[in-house]
Design a protein around this nucleic acid. Structure first.
Lengths: 213, 213
DNA sequence: GTCTATACACTGATAGAC
DNA sequence: GTCTATCAGTGTATAGAC
């Protein structure tokens, strides 16, 4: 029955609609915050009637929760570069690269996360206490091992991680400020490369490893 | 006429009331965002009836605008340490100290600022374009001069400034996350000192000056 | 100047036709 | 599954007594 023309099963169609809504929601939540966002505006951005949103996501909060969880899962996967590295220069350098690229490609997600944390994490507090805490402990151990092996300066691993998060996410969360200070224009490819190189140079030099790449 | 018992003139009383409202508003805007904050909640925190807020500040937006402007002015004054310094180690070190202390003492203000910028600065865009842009240019010239004089490594002055803002404000804006990763407890005096020392160590080493103090 | 009561607009959510 | 019409609740702002 017309399989070629309508390749979408019910499930596929549902997933496509949900993705459409989730992407619109991420944008609106990022620009207006949870309280400032309205279901009407999300619906307009998605190009759907407002009632359809409530068909796929029963409440505004459930939609928001899904957006935040997706962002968190995405970040965790992107951080794998840390583990496959064989030393601090490669591992931390690649982590900075990865997080800078995420900041450029998905600034809305970063802003939603920042907003959620600033408001005391009403939705993802349990993730902070479990998954994020475990991830942080694991990476701190890797950094401490590098220090013990004399491959980098003795720095506080926890505060190094905070610095990595802060500097890379700053380019997404404060992107509007950076854009304004760049004559109102988004950073060019070259300017992004310069930003990435600057962050890597200062931090890698700061922890006593050479900043190549 | 009882001057000692009622030392407040009308003007003084008005200023005291406004200050009370502004402090409550800063807290509530920081925790809930502009859209999530309600005049009722601000009134409750201030211990006043809701209508009184509208007497002193005609609209919610005018109240918010005043909060954001106060924060910006406060930050500008605190950044003076940059100018009175005679070299990069002292100047940048003192700037990190000052901003870390502001993050600890006034986290709500930092969050309101972050939220405002993330939402594309609807209220303080003109400040970004004028005052902040001028301030940034001036400090970039100071850093460039230090570089030209061979007193620090050649780094991109603009991205160094962004890194200083990002790392120091992170301790306020993401304070809840940091607290959660600290077994749910606020950082102690000693932990704050450790944070400050870590930031200074990595950045000052990263730009090629010794990290004393 | 201060506060209570209320007007008016808007939002999240739903009922019910298609 | 999709959409229009609508309800109930909440928020900003104000009128008017004190």
């Amino acid at each position: 029955m017309n399989i070629a023309a309508k390749p979408q099963s019910k499930k596929q169609r549902r997933e496509a609609q949900e993705k459409l809504i989730l992407e619109a929601a991420e944008k609106v939540f990022a620009e207006a915050g949870f309280g400032g966002a309205t279901m009407q505006l999300i619906a307009d951005v998605a190009g759907l009637p407002k009632a359809n949103l409530h068909y796929y996501f029963p409440t505004k909060e459930s939609l928001y929760r899904q957006v935040v969880q997706n962002i968190f899962q995405f970040w965790l996967r992107a951080a794998d570069v840390f583990d496959s590295a064989e030393g601090p220069a490669e591992g931390i350098g690649a982590y900075i690269d990865a997080k800078m690229e995420i900041s450029r490609a998905y600034p809305a997600g970063s802003k939603v996360w920042a907003s959620e944390v600033m408001h005391r994490a009403p939705v993802i507090q349990d993730y902070l206490e479990t998954t994020l805490a475990e991830w942080t402990d694991g990476r701190m151990k890797v950094i401490q091992r590098w220090i013990d092996e004399g491959r980098m300066n003795p720095v506080n691993p926890r505060h190094l991680l905070y610095m990595l998060w802060a500097t890379t996410q700053h380019y997404a969360d404060f992107g509007h400020q950076i854009e304004t200070l760049n004559e109102g224009k988004a950073l060019s490819d070259q300017q992004w490369a310069e930003a990435k190189a600057s962050v890597k140079q200062i931090i890698l030099t700061g922890i006593g490893v050479s900043a190549e790449g």
